[in-house]
Nucleic acid binder design. Sequence first.
DNA 1: TAAGGAACTTAGCAAGCAGGGT
DNA 2: ACCCTGCTTGCTAAGTTCCTTA
Length: 597
Amino acid sequence: LIMFFLAGKCSSFHHVIVETPSCSSCSRSSPPVVIWLLSVRWEEERYEDGVKWKCLEHNGPYFPPEYQPLPYNVHFFYNGKKMKLSLAAEEVALFFAQMLDHEYTTKKVFRENFFRDWRKEMTHQERLVITDLEKCDFRELHAFHKDKVEARKALSKEEKQKDANQKIVDKYGFCLLDNHRERIGNFKLEPPGLFRGRGEHPKQGMLKKRIQPEDIIINCGKESKPPAPPAGHHWKEVRHDNTVTWLASWTENVQGSIKYIMLNANSKLKGEKDWEKYEVARKLKSCVDSIRDGYLRDLKSKQMVTRQRAVALYFIDKLALRAGNEKEEGETADTVGCCSLRVEHITLHDELDGNECVVEFDFLGKDSIRYYNKVPVIKKVFKNIKLFMENKDPGDELFDRLNTALLNKHLSSLMPGLTAKVFRTYNASITLQQQLQQLTNKADNVAEKLLSYNRANRAVAILCNHQRAPPKTFEQSMANLHSKIVARKEQLALAKTELKLAKKELKTRGSPDSKLQRKAAAVKRCEDQLLKMEVQATDREENKQIALGTSKLNYLDPRISVAWCKNMDVPIEKIYNKTQREKFAWAIDMTEADFEF
DNA sequence: TAAGGAACTTAGCAAGCAGGGT
DNA sequence: ACCCTGCTTGCTAAGTTCCTTA
């Protein structure tokens, strides 16, 4: 061990138990002796530029089960008449039938796209007959599907299905990367179905085809045995590219984009990348002041591009907007980010609600989530925006001279590795750290500490606009919680009177002390539970439309949270569930209480 | 420099599941 | 033992960024 240490192969000893035995006769201590080595952090040799691994072995993707034809007593009807469909047409019909409970199957675009693609799967004969979607009756298929779901629900307690599933995971769920067994993130191929984009997607309803082995490129180590394709099939290609991290890829037919099978977030490869991301963000912390000075200066530039870049950066920094690449029209839902903002997305107010120079944002961002915000900005920014909007139509780009490539090129010249998205990471993490400092008070109990943590998390989620639809049962569950609180309050009052009674009894009749203690404990228990429930109610109410998960998983340096837990004496399990702990194992392992982002 | 391709991160939804309450 | 509810997990779409090609 010491030889490795001296050779620089091992940078630190983790969990090494050292004992200093004393001599039994003279009781002097001997030099420390390493008696137990639990784990050592090895400084594994860095691979040369761009190389991600040396050996990679896996069993390829798991294919979804083949289509099972409908039973004889389930019928499709066209124009009121029973009609037996070909296997291919039947499969696609069932996709549609399965979705019938969803509102979007009533949407015009969805139906048109579905019908067009469905007809492509039909035989010539079928195509001649089936010419109008309105005359199609999928009700029996729909009912068949619902029965199947019900049946599976009842069956799900049976363990045998779990067994089969476990076998699949064991075989396909892991790979061997540089002699480490690593979990794969998405080893199951996406099953065929109807595409449902988010928002008003022009391609919604189109058929997402079944992926064949012939569509798949396998990536694995040169020396390793490539996975075997399903019997009677072959892979599109087997390659050995160790500059990338994916194990398999294919081109998806609806958007024509490439999809990948990659490692789980808890893998070494992903963990290191995550750590790097936060290190870049921390580096931004050390130079963000001069970068801010820079773009504030640029607001006065003679060059229009420079001014637009400065205003865009101001938004990205202050509001944590995404970069906003331009998108091909008609291929995706109409959403924008910073650089692709259009005139119609902002309204300027010289004065609003007692603030001067207010910019009102209203646009659809990623996933067609609405961004709505009224932001007071500095005068120079306000004037510039006015200028950018002059003589433009609502549909014109606000930053007509700017795009993400230009912006990122500038950013990387200010700091290596700096891009627009680093600002989101940086501002999210620094906000969490500041909020935790402000909100947490050492005297709080665990429940209140956690409320503070969630509030800090919430501040970040609001900044990043991470929304969610309030759960359908939200009002109901709030009401339930409140009635429970009322009940608990009554119980508390009761416990208190009983305690008083016990006290009196003790004075007058000298009844046993243990009874008094029991009653006091009951009051305490009630108070604790009441507080816990009240905190929970507050938390839930404040969280109604906010999604905390995304920021926790992708934007907040886990070391901030780990250090906070250590300082606050809160178990890490209270803020990270099992998956999250696995993903952030690197941070949980290395972070000391004095960590500062 | 524009356009498209490739690789990887970020995102919300909903099915599934576990754990608490009755 | 059972049911409900809220969290976890899987899923896969939708972004960003960097690279390649013309």
